[in-house]
Amino acid sequence: MNGKLNGPHETFLITGVVGFIGFFLTRSLLDQGCNVVGIDNLNDYYGLNLKNSRLEALSLYDRFTFLKADISDKEILLKIFKEYKPRVVVNLAAQAGVRYSIENPDAYIQSNIVGFFNILEACRHHPVEHLLYASSSSVYGSNQKVPFEEMDFVDHPVSLYAATKKSNELMAHTYSHLYKIPATGLRFFTVYGPMGRPDMAYFGFADKYFSGEPIKIFNNGDFENDLYRDFTYIDDIVEGIERLICNPPQGEVQHEVYNIGNNNPEKLMVFIETLEKAFSNKLKRKVEFNKIFEPIKPGDVPATYASTERLQQAVGFKPKTPIEVGLQKFADWYVDYYKVK
């Protein structure tokens, strides 16, 4: 690849295409004139209304092809690769969520392990110029050393979700070694923004407030030792992916892993106060959540904090959107989309 997106000459295969990141990445690629084949199984992990809204928006583009399929179905996946011959694959299909992995572990093995294996097999039999895939900041587990760097020891995951993502990195490395598949893992750090995932905390806080319910904060009410999160705005995630698309790994084993995080962790309570202000600005009235403090949940980690040096060295980019800007855009969208007052 020549360091830029080649418009109509590129065919991208995006899995999880009507998910949060999948939607925004696909829309950006389509706006640049690329062809995108999108796969999604439209599961009901969260309500389908939002996924259908994203799909409707993407369906307005002539260069977009949607296929309802599940990556855990190997036969269908191989047929799709054979027919559409994608040059670049971005695997964003996965069962997400740390806490849900405790309730429904089967879903994580099926999608994140079996499904990803099928993606690798498809890339093996139908070679691609670059495979990018979603990993997660959760692979760092309860590491005490911050900021998290890609070369840190990550063999002690504290949730099944994290374990599946670490497994993806190991599997991709192996396939790159054996079959020369250029592959890049993307360790995302707490992605947020308009049209985001309703299971994420900031979205849930908004839902609770407008339903007249209190929000639960899992930090024991300890403001001095509050949870820290590296909140990363969706536009920064998309730009990071697009820059990496054009820079497949080189070398004997063509596999790399990059953090995509804001490199500026915020206390959870500061994030919540900023969200309250954003809704106050949009609604022209004071918004204050009713808060209940509870113990930290199993699988949660005290802090996520990304080093972005490797990303900067590779593609000259680091996420930069402050939470004041990102949360205002979310609040504006939420009020308009749900028509709340």
Score class of each variant (00 low, 15 high):
T232N: 04
G97P: 14
I260N: 02
I71N: 05
K4Q: 01
S53R: 14
K341T: 15
D62T: 10
G212F: 12
T164Q: 09
Y233F: 15
D207V: 08
A93M: 12
A107P: 00
E309Q: 11
G19R: 05
A206R: 12
V17M: 03
K79Q: 11
Y305C: 06
V335S: 10
D226E: 14
F293G: 09
N118C: 11
L78N: 08
R54D: 02
E121L: 13
L77S: 09
M1D: 04
L55Y: 04
K82Q: 12
G3W: 03
N43I: 01
D235P: 02
P198Y: 14
F210G: 09
T232C: 09
C246K: 04
E288D: 07
N6S: 03
K267W: 05
F23T: 05
P298F: 10
Y46T: 01
F271V: 07
L67M: 12
G299P: 06
T184N: 07
S167M: 11
R285I: 05
R63V: 00
N259P: 05
T304V: 03
P319M: 14
G261K: 00
Y338V: 10
D70I: 10
A57T: 09
V191L: 07
G240H: 03
Y108D: 11
D332P: 05
I260R: 01
I323M: 11
V88R: 02
P298K: 15
S167N: 08
H126R: 07
I71D: 03
V89M: 06
L275G: 01
R310I: 08
L327P: 05
E121Q: 14
A107C: 05
